[in-house]
Amino acid sequence: MSELLWVLFDLVLAGLTVGLAWVAVATRELRRGVLLFVGLGLLLAVIWARLRAPDLALAEAAIGAGIAGALLIAALRDEIGVSAEPEDGYTASRRLVDLGAIGLLLALSWGLLDAFLLSDGVRLAEGVAERLGESGVINPVTAVLLNFRAYDTLLELAVVFAAVLGVLSVGPARPALEAGSLVLTGLVRWLVPILVVVAGYLLWVGAHAPGGAFQAGAMLAAVAVLLRLGGVAHAGLPGTAATRWLLVLGIGVFVIVGLSVMFADRAFLQYPGDIAGVLILVIEIAATLSIATALALAYLGGRPVGWEADCDSPQHRVNRGAADRGGDA
């Protein structure tokens, strides 16, 4: 009986998700699309929870729905004043894209169907369970992300870094909001310490339960978003030099830890078994700070005030001028 209820629940969930995704894409009003997209993120989080992947559910809720939603809404505000008239209706190219998407969906379904006929469904999970004891953590997701496939995570941190470098190179940050109403600032003042504690908790608990650097980083970034909404222009970020250091800390610590084990005649990122847990925690703390800084800078939408003040010292400029003249001679 309860089995049947769950099937029913899953069907409703799946239908809602597909429907919401369709409406979010099909809607002609950008603002409505963004709000529906945030709703879609929450539904996806529920789906991950149903699939017993609470780590992903947390990440989806915090990043997919939370921070991505905040970024999109901030971007929407930029659009005000720009003519937001959508291209009229259902054009031929749009129809072509739809057809292509449906074709891909059919192909993908065919491939997955065949794959599931072929495979028993265990895949690498068995290997992970077998070697979990050597990884230094108990949570298998953290073991995969920071030990078995730590190199992927390192490159993913680099992807975040690349994205924020792109944001920083395109233009200056959005102007700060003026301080909000008393209710808002009061709420912010009240929530910020709680969120910081929660972020620390998520980071710590990642070793044995759902949580970890990405979720904790998103939580800290939420602090920055709240501060910014409450009228704090720098959104809690420290000065330029410190922010730069925070931004590179995650990858830097990751690589340095990975390289230093090589002195003990090990492969890159091959942590010694007895201190693996500690090394993973160190990497995760650094990664959390970097992810939070990157997401906060992305929310600012560009270079904070004074970001490039120290890029070109006067003396440097003189030297370069001399070199240029030399080159032309």
């Binding site: 290997g127 992970v128 030990n147 078995f148 496939r149 730590a150 190199y151 990122l269 942590y271």
Partner: peptide
């Protein structure tokens, strides 16, 4: 990488 056999590791 990490000393894990390819498949489990990279």
């Amino acid at each position: 990488l990490g000393g894990w056999q390819p498949g489990l590791g990279i």
